[in-house]
Amino acid sequence: MNILKKLEHRLASNTGTPHHDVFKELVRALCLKKKFDLAALYELPYDDFDLAISIMQNWRLDRYTKTKARLRILLDLTGE
């Protein structure tokens, strides 16, 4: 499973955790080209931190446009 699809799955399944909010804000910042508090990443467990770094790397490569569109819909970022 590629990184952005893994993120999409995590956002859809773990809605009640503080880590969900960090990933949600990260995606919001990436989609909307907004600022993101990188210190929030240090609060994540190492596996989630590693996922967040991979998300930023893959997002920058801009290969996963279909997944990016699904993430925008999942986070209701279509109107912003």
Rank of each mutant, 00 (worst) to 15 (best):
T78R: 05
L38I: 12
D47S: 11
L7G: 07
L74T: 13
A39H: 10
R60M: 07
E43S: 10
T67S: 10
L26T: 04
L44D: 02
E25L: 14
K33A: 13
W59K: 04
H20L: 00
A29K: 02
A69T: 12
K35T: 14
E25F: 01
V27I: 15
E8M: 04
D48H: 03
G16R: 08
H19N: 15
E43M: 07
K66M: 14
W59N: 02
Y46F: 14
S54N: 12
V22I: 15
R28S: 10
I53K: 12
E43V: 05
T67E: 13
N14S: 12
K6S: 15
L74E: 10
L77I: 02
F23P: 03
A69H: 09
N14W: 12
G16C: 05
K34G: 05
L26I: 02
L74D: 04
L4D: 03
D76W: 04
L41W: 04
Y46W: 12
E80I: 02
A69W: 04
I73V: 09
Q57W: 01
K6D: 13
M1H: 10
N2Q: 04
L71D: 00
R63H: 01
L61E: 12
A40D: 10
L11Y: 06
Y46I: 11
H9D: 10
L75N: 02
T78H: 09
L41V: 11
V27H: 05
W59R: 02
F49P: 05
I55G: 03
L44Y: 06
L11N: 10
P18Q: 14
M1A: 09
E25A: 12
I55A: 02
L26E: 08
K24T: 11
R28K: 12
D48F: 07
H9V: 13
A12W: 08
K5G: 10
R10L: 11
N14F: 09
M56S: 06
